[in-house]
Design a protein around this nucleic acid. Structure first.
Lengths: 199, 199
DNA sequence: GACAAAAACGAACGATCGTGCTTTTATGGC
DNA sequence: GCCATAAAAGCACGATCGTTCGTTTTTGTC
């Protein structure tokens, strides 16, 4: 296990950076404040990444790995069909509410921040989001094969709609501070599910 | 009509600022670049607003007024019930796609940017969003009274869900650049509508 | 057309940004 | 424990940030 000293601090930096970026965005990430938070010198921290852009990409990478560990992988160990789709949604909710990011989901913040700023960071985020939608769609498709959902249901549409439920939850929970946010999200999810199920 | 010279430039600044902020966010708004864009001096522009925060609030105010003019007011002139709700949605879509903001909906950008930054700007945005959700809920409620929707349907839940549809559209359209984004949004809207209608 | 008020300008401020250098300190294989 | 190498620090740079201040130009009223 080649865990060198540099790698340890690099991971520590990324962990802190994910939390910080969830509050101020990827663009609002600042090498100075990040270094202060970790009691490092600006140049010492900077040396681990060769540019701010490289740091941003690695922050996305780190957050994605955490997301897979705490949402995707556990849910995929659930039985196919409705239980698995439900697990994906429930863990997604939990991630949004109380993940490693005090400022709300980093991906949501990055999505609106980067959606009109071409470049490698945006490209990576785009791919990560497509992958995640793909996971949802695939899980739904398995549910169709199991007979849990209507044969003519569109898995990509379901993934799209489920994303909307999550975004509305994020919006209601964080900006509007609606105490009913979670209940509304679950209600929307159940409606989505019953529409996709046999009538 | 007390349209003084200062007011004219102030409006011009705000118009440009809304477009700029839709791309870089309210925080990314910069007095320097804004002044350059309008061939004004930094201090000359700054004089119209006493602080950047005041500028940000007035930018929100200006965008909200435009939104009311091009989305809310026209839709409210439609017949009560389904036609009005449909008009709200259609004009909302159009606003998101091709409004005065080349960088996507300013409110969506501001929502994720400010959702964890307390202060007057966030407070104002919060209120504007609540107002908008209120307009949707009220329109839906009128639809219930008209008999277009089920009596036991929850207008606030409908508004919440519709917001999710719009957010998912924004995400698919702008970040993912999904050519089917608009079709998916309409599909989701129709599903929402038919769930709310008598079966 | 004079003249007070409003608007725009120009220059400067302290701070912070990302990034490049050089130097000092810590690490880890032999 | 030596020593090449990696990690961290220190310092400085040009740029840009929001904001202030004093001056100049423009506006609108009598």
């Amino acid at each position: 296990m080649p865990t060198t000293k540099g790698e340890v601090t690099r991971q520590a930096v990324l962990e802190r950076a994910v939390a910080l970026a969830s509050r101020v965005g990827l663009g609002g990430l600042t090498i100075g404040t990040l270094a202060d938070d970790l009691d490092l010198s600006k140049s010492g921290l900077f040396g681990h990444f060769r540019s701010k852009e490289a740091l941003q990409i690695q922050v996305l990478e780190h957050a994605a790995a955490t997301f897979v560990d705490s949402v995707v992988r556990p849910a995929l160990s659930q039985p196919r069909g409705v239980p698995r789709v439900r697990a994906l949604f429930e863990r997604w909710l939990e991630w949004t509410r109380s993940g490693p990011m005090p400022g709300g989901c980093l991906f949501v913040a990055a999505a609106t921040e980067l959606d009109d700023r071409p470049g490698p960071v945006r490209d990576r985020l785009q791919q990560l989001q497509r992958d995640w939608l793909g996971v949802i769609a695939t899980s739904f498709r398995k549910g169709v094969e199991e007979g849990h959902f209507r044969r003519d249901a569109d898995p990509d549409q379901f993934a799209h709609d489920l994303y909307g439920v999550a975004l509305a939850y994020h919006h209601a929970q964080r900006l509007l501070q609606d105490p009913k946010a979670e209940g509304r999200a679950r209600h929307a999810f159940e409606a989505l599910l019953s529409t996709a199920q046999r009538h």
